[in-house]
Amino acid sequence: PPSSSSTVVPTSLPPYFIKGSIIQLADGELKRVEDLKTEDFIQSAEISSDLKIDSSTVERIEGSISASNFAVVQFSVGEHRAQVSVEVLVEYPFFVFGQGWSSCCPDRTTQLLELPCTKLSVGDVCISLTLKNLR
């Protein structure tokens, strides 16, 4: 079987990435999207009954052949280093461990969402989610 899979993240920018959006953590605390820290995601996942945080290392970033404002980001996910590719708008933000929001085109992210953002690079470790093993 193929060792990689492809996931398409929503192709329009969701409203919750706009600066000032109110995000509810798993313990009920409310924070603005631009104020979220790595610990907020980790602690929320610890409380969650079915979700766990996985480390997704950026292995490759390339332009999409379908449209110039899309990028294909290839991740190595979790301890099994499963290869996952996602096609996203270049301004789509990912949360990098210990760093914060990052996108393929931070200038566009800041312009469209006013979300402070750095450049997503190969080697960055992003926060992603998988289902907990329910045994």
Binding site: I22, L36, D40, F41, S44, H80, S128, T130
Partner: peptide
């Protein structure tokens, strides 16, 4: 009386891409 519009609140996990790797075992 006009009720004030509530501000939308989004769950934390909607901000994180859900990457489900293929399982080989």
């Amino acid at each position: 009386n006009v009720e004030p519009r509530s501000v939308p609140v989004f769950p934390w996990h909607s901000l994180v891409p859900f990457l489900a790797p293929t399982q080989s075992d």
